[in-house]
Simulated assay, not measured.
Amino acid sequence: MFLNSKESISLDVNNVPKHVAIIMDGNGRWAQKRHLPRIAGHKKGMNVVEDVTIAASEIGVKVLTLYAFSTENWKRPEDEVNYIMSLPEKFFDKFVPKLIENNVSVRVMGLIDQLPASTKKAVDDAVSKTSHCTGMILNFALNYGSRMEITDAVKKISQQVKDNQLLPSEIDEKIIDANLMTGYLEELSDPDVVIRTSGEERISNFLLWQIAYSEFIFTDILWPDITKNSFLNLILEYQSRNRRFGGLKNK
């Protein structure tokens, strides 16, 4: 049972999702509702990342993957993109000590080399400083798109075949898994649950291969309004599901 001063939430400790993936949506709308610039929503959303990360670690989640910036997000207004690119430096400078305190390691997947130099340095430093942590993995999808990821995996596998390292007949799901950006997660690559905030109900080019059997939870709550308790309630919703993986419901 997890408690705070307002509400008690009882979770089944034996049914905590190992891998939670979140599409953090609604920062801009949160700001607009308050007649604030969109960047104010991104700033508030950054604070929510801290709260959700610690909450996920506390309940025993093994991997928390956050969709922070897609390959398509470069189409947004330049000032908004520039602000988002400045967030990792602010975020990690403040949050890395707490991540270390909670034994959380940072990993990042996406086209990291295409990020601005200061952003890439902040990301690389966070990964390095938390590399000794053995608890939950906080995995950011940054400059990430699933079609790009799958295309890149096909190229890598094709090169392995060309170099006589692999026969076409040997290509199976495990080979594909290993060549995706989540390959380092091994048996934890596939999210148990995908959560999208803000009321939108679409995948937006996120982990298309990995979510084949994931549960989906869509909430109307905008990301900046997510609290520890609302996150725990979403996990409670996950625990109410019966995952069959294509089979029949257990009797």
Score class of each variant (00 low, 15 high):
Met1His: 13
Met1Ala: 15
Leu3Thr: 11
Leu3Lys: 13
Glu7Asp: 11
Ser8Glu: 13
Ile9Met: 04
Leu11Glu: 11
Asp12Trp: 06
Asp12Phe: 06
Asn14Pro: 04
Val16Met: 07
Val20Phe: 07
Gly26His: 15
Ala31Arg: 14
Gln32Met: 09
Lys33Glu: 13
Leu36Glu: 01
Ala40Arg: 07
Gly41Asp: 11
Lys44Gly: 06
Gly45Ile: 12
Gly45Phe: 07
Asn47Ser: 15
Asn47Val: 11
Val48Thr: 12
Val48Ser: 11
Val49Asp: 15
Glu50Pro: 11
Asp51Leu: 05
Gly60Pro: 03
Leu64Arg: 09
Leu64Asn: 10
Phe69Asp: 12
Glu72Thr: 02
Asn73Gly: 03
Trp74His: 03
Glu78Pro: 00
Tyr83Gln: 02
Ile84Gly: 05
Phe91Pro: 05
Phe92Pro: 05
Asp93Tyr: 04
Lys94Ile: 00
Phe95Gly: 08
Val96Thr: 09
Val96Ser: 07
Pro97Thr: 03
Leu99His: 04
Asn102His: 12
Met109Ala: 14
Leu111Val: 13
Ser118Phe: 09
Ala122Cys: 09
Ala122Thr: 08
Asp125Cys: 03
Val127Ser: 07
Cys133His: 08
Thr134Ala: 01
Met136Gly: 03
Ile137Glu: 04
Leu138Phe: 15
Leu138Asp: 14
Ala141Glu: 15
Gly145Gln: 14
Ser146Ile: 06
Ser146Pro: 08
Thr151Leu: 06
Asp152Val: 02
Val154Trp: 12
Val154Glu: 11
Lys155Gly: 06
Lys155Gln: 12
Lys156Phe: 00
Lys156Met: 01
Lys156Asn: 02
Ile157Glu: 07
Ser158Gln: 13
Gln159Met: 04
Gln160Leu: 01
Gln165Asp: 04
Glu170Gln: 14
Lys174Pro: 00
Ile175Phe: 02
Ala178Ile: 03
Asn179Pro: 01
Asn179Trp: 03
Leu180Glu: 15
Thr182Glu: 14
Gly183Asp: 15
Tyr184Thr: 07
Leu185Trp: 01
Leu188Gly: 05
Leu188His: 07
Ser189Ile: 00
Pro191Arg: 08
Asp192Arg: 00
Val193Asn: 11
Val194Asn: 14
Val194Lys: 15
Ile195Met: 10
Ile195Trp: 06
Ile195Arg: 10
Ile195Asn: 09
Thr197Arg: 11
Ser198Gly: 01
Ser198Trp: 10
Ile203Trp: 05
Leu207Arg: 15
Trp209Lys: 00
Gln210Asp: 13
Glu215Tyr: 03
Ile217Arg: 01
Phe218Cys: 01
Ile221Gln: 06
Thr227Gly: 07
Thr227Lys: 14
Thr227Pro: 10
Thr227Trp: 09
Phe231Pro: 06
Leu232Thr: 15
Leu234Pro: 09
Ile235Trp: 11
Ile235Ser: 12
Arg241Asn: 10
Arg243Tyr: 10
Arg243Met: 10
Phe245Trp: 09
Phe245Leu: 00
Leu248Asn: 14
Lys249Asp: 05
Lys251Asn: 12
